[in-house]
């Protein structure tokens, strides 16, 4: 399985880069590094949320040939801190039935989906944000500390879910501070320092 899914070429902003990286289908890349080193900026640039130059390809097709919203439906960024734009949890899910299935696999009580966002804990928010982003089954996932607020059991269940996606061919770029997690999910690991990525 060596088909190239995502290729990043000389991607840079005024703050960080340049970055060059090729990610195969079904591959998970783990990125670690001190806070403020530019890990989140890097993921945001791949998702085209921050202005940047250089080229990014998805399955050989250049990012500029996608409308930005279409690109972000394929290359989904999940920030460390989740955002909620409506009071009801259910409003945040395009497919509520599918969301319930995934939520149950992440040990979330089913009634959470019918309640208000205000009543969610940090860990519940993080898992629901992951559910929200997994629903479209995108070819690329950009995960920013996806399990930081989770206990060990939930973390294991989240990793199992991600492993399924990898087997289905999704490419994952993941920022994580847990070297055990990086070891379980990824074969290649990188360190971000002073806005540059180097193999660990």
């Amino acid at each position: 399985m060596t088909q190239e899914r995502l290729r990043i070429q000389a991607m840079r902003s005024s703050l960080v880069g340049p970055f060059d990286l090729s990610v195969a289908a079904g591959e998970c890349i783990a990125i670690s590094g001190a806070s403020g080193s530019g890990k989140s900026l890097f993921l945001r640039m791949v998702a085209d949320l921050d202005p940047n130059t250089g080229a990014v390809f998805l399955d050989g097709r250049e990012r500029g040939s996608f409308a930005a919203p279409a690109w972000r439906r394929q290359v989904i960024y999940v920030p460390a801190e989740s955002g909620w734009w409506s009071e009801a949890v259910a409003d945040h899910f395009s497919d509520l039935a599918a969301a319930r299935v995934l939520a149950a696999r992440l040990d979330l009580k089913p009634e959470l989906l019918d309640g208000p966002v205000l009543r969610l804990s940090t860990g519940e928010k993080q898992r629901l944000a992951l559910v929200r982003s997994l629903l479209p089954a995108s070819p690329v996932l950009l995960l920013d500390e996806p399990t930081a607020a989770l206990d060990e059991t939930s973390q294991g269940h989240a990793e199992a879910l991600l492993r399924e996606r990898l087997q289905a061919g999704t490419a994952i770029l993941m920022v994580t501070h847990r070297s055990d997690q990086a070891a379980r999910l990824s074969r290649r690991r990188f360190v971000m320092a002073q806005g540059r990525l180097t193999p660990a």
Binding site: R72, Y77, G83, W85, P136
Partner: peptide, 19 residues
């Protein structure tokens, strides 16, 4: 104030108008 909420929608493919 609502940066996170706006960007959460953009991340899922919303247009700027929608978000």
């Amino acid at each position: 104030r609502e940066k996170a909420a706006i960007e959460a929608q953009l991340c899922l493919g919303a247009t700027n108008r929608q978000a």
